[in-house]
C-alpha cells in the first residue's frame, strides 16, 4: 500500500476545482437559459467557443487578454440575446420541439463557422493569469498553479455577482418571476420577451468567459468545447437544471471526480473517465430525479 501523499492530493484537488470551475460556468449558462425558457441550449458550448476565438483574435491585435475576454463576454451577451430574439422566440411559438432542432443546427453551424473563419488548426490563447512554469504558490506542501486559483476565483466572483443580480436588482427579480410564472409576469407589467433575451445574453457572456479561461490550457480548437459541454450539461442536470447553486456544486464535483479518477484510479485510465463519471451521474439521478438541488414543485391550491 502506498502512503497517502497529502501534497499530491491537494494539487489534484485544485486541478479538479479549476476544471470543475469551467464546467460550473458553462452549467450556470445552461441553467440561466433553462430557468427562463425551459430549454437546454445545445449550442451553448459552441457559442462560447466562437467568443473565445474572437477573444484570441483580439489579443493578436495587441489587446490585453483581460480586455479581450471582457469583449468576448460582451459579444457572447449580444450573440445570446440575438439567438433568443431572432431564432428561438419566433420558432418557439410555433413548435417548442423545433427549438431543439434549431439549437442543434446552431451548434453545427457555429462549429463550421469557426473552422471557416479561423481554420482547423489549434490556436494558442494567452492566459489572463500568470502561467509561466514557476507561477505557483505552495499550499500544504503542494505546488498550486496561479492559473488554477485564478479560474476558481473568477467562478466565485461571477457566482457572487449573479447572486447579487438575481436577489438585489429589479431585472433579477423579473428574471426570477419569469422563471416561476410567465403569464403572471406579463400581468405585473414585465416584458417577458426582453427578460428572456437578457437571460440568454447573460448565459452567452458567462459561457464566453468559461471558454476563454479554458482555451489557454486546452488549446483553442473546434473540438475544445465538446467534452466540457457534456460535463456541463451533466452538471446542470445533476444540479437540478433550475438551480444555479446546484449547477456550480455539481460542476465542481464533476471536476474533482474527474481529477481523482485520473489521479488515483489509474487502472481506469483517462479514456474511461467519461463513462465512469456518467455512471455516477446516473446513480444520482436514479436516487434523486429532480437533481441534487432542483426544486420539486409543491403547490397548494
Amino acid at each position: 500500500m502506498l502512503a497517502f501523499a497529502t501534497d499530491l492530493f491537494i494539487q489534484r484537488t485544485f486541478d479538479g476545482l479549476a476544471k470543475g470551475s469551467i464546467y460550473a460556468l458553462l452549467a450556470l449558462a445552461l441553467v440561466v437559459v433553462f430557468r427562463g425558457s425551459g430549454q437546454l441550449n445545445f449550442a451553448q458550448g459552441e457559442m462560447a467557443l466562437f467568443c473565445a476565438f474572437f477573444a484570441q483574435t483580439l489579443t493578436l491585435s495587441g489587446l490585453p487578454v483581460v480586455l479581450a475576454i471582457v469583449a468576448a463576454a460582451l459579444s457572447g451577451f449580444v450573440m445570446g440575446a440575438g439567438v433568443e430574439r431572432f431564432l428561438i422566440r419566433p420558432i418557439e411559438k410555433k413548435s417548442p420541439i423545433a427549438v431543439v432542432v434549431v439549437a442543434v443546427g446552431l451548434f453545427l453551424g457555429l462549429n463550421n463557422l469557426v473552422a471557416v473563419i479561423w481554420g482547423v488548426d489549434a490556436r494558442r490563447m494567452p492566459s489572463p493569469f500568470p502561467n509561466e512554469a514557476d507561477d505557483f504558490i505552495r499550499i500544504g506542501g503542494a505546488a498550486v498553479r496561479l492559473e488554477r486559483l485564478g479560474i476558481i476565483a473568477v467562478l466565485l466572483l461571477l457566482v457572487a455577482l449573479l447572486w447579487l443580480m438575481f436577489n438585489r436588482t429589479r431585472i433579477g427579480l423579473a428574471m426570477r418571476a419569469v422563471a416561476n410564472n410567465q403569464p403572471s409576469s406579463q400581468l405585473v407589467g414585465i416584458r417577458v420577451g426582453r427578460v428572456l433575451a437578457i437571460g440568454w445574453g447573460l448565459a452567452g457572456a458567462i459561457g464566453a468567459i468559461g471558454a476563454s479561461l479554458l482555451a489557454p490550457q486546452a488549446g483553442l480548437s473546434g473540438a475544445m468545447m465538446f467534452g466540457p459541454f457534456i460535463f456541463a450539461a451533466a452538471a446542470a442536470t445533476v444540479g437540478g437544471l433550475d438551480s444555479p447553486v446546484g449547477a456550480v456544486v455539481a460542476g465542481l464535483a464533476l471536476g474533482l471526480i474527474d481529477a481523482y479518477i485520473v489521479g488515483y484510479l489509474t487502472w481506469i485510465g483517462g479514456d474511461l473517465v467519461l463513462p465512469v463519471t456518467f455512471g455516477i451521474i446516473l446513480a444520482v439521478l436514479v436516487l434523486k430525479p429532480s437533481g441534487l438541488l432542483g426544486s420539486v414543485r409543491v403547490e397548494r391550491v
Binding site: R170, L173, N181, S184, I190
Partner: peptide, 20 residues
Amino acid sequence: GRGTFTDLSVEDNLMAGAYV
C-alpha cells in the same frame, strides 16, 4: 387561480407587483 409567484417570497411577489 391567483397567479402568485409560488417560488418567490411574499415580499418578492409584492415587489414584482411594483415592477412598473
